[in-house]
């Protein structure tokens, strides 16, 4: 494994601390003109998304982490395991329900996603910011109710419930923002 010395420190560096992968998101060099150099860093844990504040002194080092971001396609789910395929080399990846988190709500077969590999194993998943999902079931809306302020839960093809305006009907396709889980718009069907 490569080692990064303090003078290699910079934003975007992927490093391993206490056996977990981190990305350096801030690096501030502090040095009295006639004194010791310190590197004040903020690091994001790539497994848990938590932030770590660390100060290093000149000459310290960090181990590099073998972290890479790749594009992949969602294949299917079996039990609690989600299967994905690398778009380039057709490698298959398995992610647990825990790693996928709430994003299961948006996964449809063939969907292009991104995953972060750590030591060649996937650790996190990022779906596209917007996905289009078909409404499988919903209560009919009151006739003529076109206001978007009145919402109702609808069940989409993945089995997830999304809050939608009352005018959404079964069979409609809706656009959802995966970052917030919010309904964005109804997609015109051809």
């Amino acid at each position: 494994m490569a080692t990064y010395k303090t003078n290699d420190f910079r934003k975007g560096l992927r490093v391993e601390i206490n056996g977990e992968p981190y990305m350096m998101i801030e690096m501030n060099f502090v040095k009295p003109g006639k004194g010791n150099a310190f590197y004040k860093c903020k690091l994001r844990n790539l497994l848990r998304n938590t932030i770590l504040d660390r100060t290093y002194k000149g000459g310290d080092s960090l181990e590099s982490a073998d972290v890479e971001e790749v594009g992949c396609q969602y294949l299917y789910k079996q039990g609690d395991t989600f299967f994905f395929m690398n778009n380039d080399d057709y490698d298959q990846y398995e992610l647990s329900a825990e790693q996928v988190g709430d994003y299961w709500k948006y996964l449809t077969e063939g969907m292009k996603c991104q995953t972060v590999l750590w030591n060649e194993n996937p650790i996190t998943l990022t779906p596209p910011n917007h996905v289009e999902l078909k409404v499988e079931y919903c209560e009919p809306g009151a006739k003529g109710d076109t206001a978007t302020s009145v919402t109702k839960p609808v069940t989409v093809e993945t089995g997830a419930e999304i809050l939608c305006p009352a005018f959404i009907e079964m069979g409609n396709i809706i656009k959802v923002d995966t970052r917030t889980g919010d309904y964005v718009e109804r997609v015109n069907q051809k």
């Binding site: 502090v30 009295p32 004194g35 010791n36 100060t55 290093y56 002194k57 310290d60």
Partner: peptide, 19 residues
């Protein structure tokens, strides 16, 4: 503080607290 801060000397500790 840096992990191995105890191995610095008195001026190192003062610099650390100072900055």
């Amino acid at each position: 503080p840096p992990e191995n801060w105890r191995s610095m000397d008195r001026d190192g500790w003062l610099d650390l607290l100072f900055t």
